[in-house]
Amino acid sequence: MVQVNTRSDDPRTGHTLTEPAAGQLRDLVAHVHEKRAELREEWVRRITEARLLTVMSEAEILTEATSVYDHYVEALETGAVETLQLYVRDLSERIIPRGVETDEVVGIVLLLTDVITRSLFTKYQDDLLLLRRILDTYEPTANKIAITVAVGFVKERERAIREQQEAIRELSTPVLQVRDRLLILPISGIIDPQRARQLTEQLLRGIRTSRAKVVVIDITGVAAMDSQVANHLVQTVEASRLLGATVIVTGLSPEIAQTLVRIGVDLAKMTTVGDLQGGIEKAERFLGYRVVPFTEPPMEANTR
């Protein structure tokens, strides 16, 4: 019933199971199967003792520990880590948002390895030669499992971080049309060269697709920018002009204004207005709009 390890010649671990080793693997798997309840409880006790997974309740730890244990045994038995990988990805997805750290995950897996090793010592303490052979079989697989779990967790975390970065980037660069031929680009947060480039690309494309004549770039939400990004801003203004659009920059903070003066920007190339409201008003005048307030309708009209 025990499958002979089909992935035993995995180049990463470089260990190949020979026939006698297969027998030891059978013994090993039988042992961890038999002692399942005992070893699992010991493991959970050690986890609590080491104050790992403090964000999870005892019951949760026991549930997760049981399925990790079963996947662990399966991986030990077959030497294949694919199922384990899938399980780790799924588990990480659940526990990462709750704030479980990498060192906790690695610590837990190493604890399980330790728990099993100790039980093997207890079982084979009278036959040191057999113990050594069993450990020879166990060690590489256990290492492989530990690496799989740790790498899976870290990968999942990196993926989550990447997704968030992507989302922030997407969210933070809207090019908005407020009137026919008038675009607004509100920028907030930190602008690094990569984001600056992306903003420019989006803006220039936006100018073409919405046939904009005026663009208001509002940088009220940008606290500071280095001279490289400031230069980029000036270049964006000039590139927009080449597409036939006028750019009005609004909301320059004193620091950014100083940076722009320090890099020696040609003020004739850039139209700046104090705040977004002023910028939109100027743009509207430029486009020939006149915004007039509604006058209160006469009383007679109201009573009808």
């Binding site: 690309e201 220039l204 494309r205 270049q235 964006t236 000039e238 590139a239 927009s240 080449l242 597409l243």
Partner: peptide, 11 residues
């Protein structure tokens, strides 16, 4: 002037 060309020119 194409958007990509515009930015390349400015640079």
């Amino acid at each position: 002037i194409q958007p990509e060309v515009a930015f390349a020119m400015v640079q």
